[in-house]
Computed example of a mutant assay.
Amino acid sequence: MTPVFAKTIPSPPESIEIMVEDAADPFSKADGTGYANDQVVAAFSAVGVDIKFNVVPYVRCKKNDA
């Protein structure tokens, strides 16, 4: 019989801040709303993580993309 080892999975953070672009209506709007942003909020909410959006121009999002 092969032994089974349990691996500890870290808890997600309580909240995170991410950059979102400001001019891709209807997906991402200047006020932080939009379809794509709603999807991000829903996904993280499902695992108990609050999201804060930092709305910036698209170029800044790409510059800070790692």
Results as ranks from 00 to 15, higher is better:
Glu14Gly: 08
Val4Ile: 14
Phe53Ser: 01
Ala42Glu: 13
Gln39Ile: 11
Val41Asn: 07
Ser15Thr: 01
Lys7Trp: 10
Tyr58Val: 08
Val55Trp: 01
Met1Thr: 13
Tyr35Ala: 14
Gly48Ile: 10
Lys52Gln: 10
Glu14Arg: 06
Gly48Tyr: 09
Val41Asp: 01
Asp25Lys: 15
Pro12His: 04
Glu14Cys: 05
Asp22Gly: 02
Val41Leu: 04
Asp65Pro: 05
Gly34Ala: 07
Ala42Gln: 12
Ala66Pro: 10
Lys7Tyr: 11
Phe5Cys: 14
Lys62Gln: 15
Val49Trp: 02
Ala36Pro: 05
Glu21Thr: 11
Pro57Lys: 06
Lys29Trp: 03
Lys29Thr: 02
Pro12Arg: 08
Glu17Cys: 09
Gly32Thr: 06
Lys7Arg: 15
Ser45Glu: 14
Tyr35Gln: 15
Val40Glu: 03
Asp38Thr: 02
Val20Asp: 08
Pro3Gln: 12
Lys62Phe: 12
Glu21Ala: 11
Ala6Met: 13
Cys61Val: 04
Val41Thr: 02
Gly32His: 07
Ile9Tyr: 08
Val20Ile: 00
Val40Ile: 10
Thr8Lys: 15
Asp50Glu: 11
Lys62Asn: 12
Cys61His: 05
Ala36Lys: 09
Ile16Asn: 03
Pro26Val: 07
Ser28Arg: 00
Asn37Ile: 03
Ile9Trp: 05
Ser28Cys: 02
Asp31Ala: 09
Gly34Ser: 03
Asp22Glu: 08
Pro10His: 01
Gly34Asp: 01
Gly32Asp: 03
Met1Trp: 15
Tyr35Trp: 15
Thr33Trp: 06
Lys7Ile: 12
Phe53Leu: 05
Asp65Lys: 11
Asp38Pro: 07
Val56Pro: 04
